[in-house]
Amino acid sequence: MSSALVNVPPRARRGEVIEIKTLISHPMETGYRRNQLGARIPRDIIRLFVCTYNGTEVFRAELHPAIAANPFLVFSTVATESGTIAFQWTGDNGLSATESAAIVVD
């Protein structure tokens, strides 16, 4: 069960560079650790993060083991038109979390 926080400015001027922040709750278990009995703890990480702006991909990140729990990603894009910015995190154990935010561009 993942929950995500995203921060997209609600309004922007056309052509303005906007900063987008995302934070998702995830253990990011590396797969290299062992439990008290010596058994390997299976890997459970987010593998891919994709951000689309009105359907167009504007940012993508591949995540790997050794990235800390609750990955916090900050990136920027150019505000081109009003619409929806959608975020998707996919990963191990069938993880697929989505979040979206509306932006108004004048």
Binding site: L23, S25, F72
Partner: peptide
């Protein structure tokens, strides 16, 4: 002041659920 950078807010979200 920025809640997005505070992992504690994930707990708040989960608490709301």
């Amino acid at each position: 002041d920025d809640d997005t950078v505070n992992p504690g807010m994930l707990g708040v979200l989960e608490g709301g659920t």
